Amino acid sequence: MAALYAFRRMTTADLPLIGQWLAKPHVREWWGDPDEQYALVSGDLAEPAMDQYVVAATGSDFGYIQCYDLTAWNSGFGAHPEGTRGIDLFIGEPAMIARGHGSAFIRAFVDDRLRDGAPRIVTDPDPANRRAVRAYENAGFEKVRMVDTPDGAALLMVRNP
């Protein structure tokens, strides 16, 4: 399945699509207020420590993933090797949910980053988001511990090479 996925750098031209996805109930449930999230995501386009991608399968855009330098944010995740990256993501297209795409594209994306020298990738899903936790586990992440974030309690998950 991994060969199906393409990760295209997000540009301002993608913002209307991202805005539509953020407003969808299944995204809003975990990402929160769409207007607030849109402001953050669009503002991060100018952030050098943040890489943002639109995820496509067989030529159709269906999701978003951001990958950031963990040291650029006060994440509360504790000590990690220099160069550790954090990820956050969502599947925007409802028809792509619950079909195995989440764990498959996470694995493909993270495998690329680890091959390119990242020493570790971390993520912090809401522990109540069982679908996300399961997708990360299926992509090779391990549960580490609960952490406090600006958005509330989260489950720190780690993937090493």
Rank of each mutant, 00 (worst) to 15 (best):
H101A: 12
A46G: 06
G78I: 04
T71A: 15
D88I: 03
Y68K: 11
W30R: 03
T71K: 07
A95G: 09
F77E: 13
L70P: 02
S42E: 13
S42Y: 03
V55D: 02
V54Y: 00
M50R: 11
A46W: 04
G92T: 01
F62T: 07
G63W: 00
C67P: 02
G83H: 11
I106Q: 08
H80K: 08
V54D: 00
G59S: 08
Y38V: 00
S75G: 15
Y64D: 03
L40K: 12
L89C: 11
F105A: 09
Q37A: 15
Y64C: 03
S103N: 12
P34Q: 05
I87N: 02
H80C: 03
Q37E: 12
A39D: 13
H80L: 06
W31E: 07
Q52K: 10
D44P: 00
D69P: 08
A49I: 08
G100V: 09
L45D: 07
D69I: 09
R28W: 00
D44N: 15
A95E: 14
I97H: 06
D35L: 11
T84R: 09
T58Y: 05
G59E: 09
D51L: 12
D44C: 09
E93F: 04
M96N: 07
F77I: 01
D51C: 06
S75L: 13
H80F: 05
A56M: 09
E29H: 10
K24I: 00
A49R: 11
D33P: 04
W21D: 01
P34Y: 02
D88E: 13
G32V: 08
P94W: 04
G76V: 09
